[in-house]
Design a protein around this nucleic acid. Structure first.
Length: 114
DNA sequence: CTCCTGACGTCCC
DNA sequence: CGGGACGCCAGGA
């Protein structure tokens, strides 16, 4: 059994997201090893999320902040905007531009589009 | 210890 | 193209 749980792995990836860039839950889930464990990513961020964990840089597959019911989406928008990320009129942002692509790992499943 | 919920994603119909 | 259901992992009751 892995010493680190899926959640721990997710947190590590999220912490590696540079400012001005964003990642999707599915992407993080894929990086962590399970493209379908997107829910675990959310749980991890909610429970393990710390001030050092840029969970606000993690968006849903739509490239927008999640219409959550228990948190404050405005926080993500504020932080992202402060980092130079600008939202478009659709209320989301350009994933094609802000999507973070992990490169220092070397062995990751391609999440980008072909 | 068991059941359910939760910042989501993808497949199927 | 739209809506519904299932799947994943972990924490809380």
């Amino acid at each position: 059994m892995p010493t680190k749980t899926f959640a721990d792995r997710v947190i590590e990836w999220v912490e590696q997201i540079p400012a001005g860039k964003v990642a999707t839950y599915g992407q993080i889930a894929t990086l962590a090893g399970n493209p379908k464990a997107s829910r675990a990513v959310a749980s991890a961020l909610r429970n393990r999320g710390t001030e050092q964990t840029p969970w606000h840089r993690v968006l849903n597959a739509k490239g927008q902040v999640s219409p959550g019911k228990s948190h404050r989406p405005a926080i993500q928008i504020s932080l992202l905007t402060s980092e130079g990320v600008h939202f478009n009129k659709t209320g989301g942002l350009d994933l094609e531009v802000y999507r973070w692509e992990p490169a220092e790992t070397g062995s990751i499943a391609r999440v980008g589009k072909d």
